[in-house]
Design a protein around this nucleic acid. Structure first.
Lengths: 144, 144
DNA sequence: TTTTATTTCCCACTTCTTCCCACAACGATG
DNA sequence: CATCGTTGTGGGAAGAAGTGGGAAATAAAA
């Protein structure tokens, strides 16, 4: 399970090191796609296969699912992790997520997300403020 | 059952010793997450598995469950207890809970909570002040 | 074909993390 | 009262992780 938050740097050569704790689970090849909420999603090959299968099952007739598929497939890239655990991010994805030098790498169960560090901090603040709603949900889920 | 309040120190290397009385019950691996009221939750692996299972049932496509999962998974960390019973707290969780050198470690039924010591004292005071009113309410409900 | 630019691969430095051991305080026990 | 064991705290040293940069390889331009 991929969990935790890591602050890393996007270097001049557009590389980000994958947190050491994620490496074993992610394997050597990954798929990066534009994510929701202005971040990037990083999937294992296995996870990506599952997702792409599901997506392609959705009706091609519906305009919104068609455009969503374009969004996911069109922006997806297969990337090799280099010998010391870094991934190379293509330009258009850097632009897409507004990445600057400092990024946040987040483990979210079975995917990894890459955020502009500042964007992530802001997003967290907003979510944390909704703590009451959060507590209620935890109750619904039966956690607390 | 985890009960009791312990005052411990968060040392320079961001370690907190788990009170000896909690060790057997917590096991060797734990999961730490941001909690409610500005504290941290410490779960056993067993409990965390239950929680994550429930969380993962929600869809990635819904905005609120997406942010909720980010909050929970992204904020969670799997930690090994070291050979003499200490847990290592990652920076972002220290920041999240506003931990300083002195912390309070609280047993709450089946989880452990970590508080900034001062924050815990204040919280207790507030709760104690409300205790009378609370007791009355509980009485009305037939608990006491 | 030569030169220039870009990408890919690998190495090296520095910082941080992890593992281990030591000390001090405390309590229990004989 | 002395001793032993346990618990909490601190710190040194080896190793790993993150970052930067150079050289080789590939592609593009002249």
């Amino acid at each position: 399970m991929l969990i935790g938050e890591y602050k890393h740097t996007l270097d001049d050569k557009k590389r980000i090191s994958l947190p050491a704790k994620f490496r074993k689970e992610m394997g050597k090849k990954i798929v990066i796609t534009p994510g929701l909420d202005n971040c990037l999603f990083v999937f294992t090959m296995g996870q990506w296969n599952k997702i792409s299968e599901k997506l392609s099952q959705s009706s091609m007739l519906k305009a919104d699912s068609r455009s969503f598929n374009r969004f996911m497939f069109g922006g997806a890239v297969e990337v090799e992790i280099d010998s010391i655990g870094r991934m190379l991010i293509p330009d258009f994805l850097i632009e897409r997520a507004g990445l600057k030098s400092r990024v946040a790498v987040i483990g979210v169960e079975d995917r990894v997300e890459i955020w502009n560090e500042e964007g992530w901090m802001n997003y967290k603040k907003v979510v944390e403020k909704e703590a009451d709603a959060l507590a209620e949900k935890l109750g619904q889920v039966g956690v607390l």
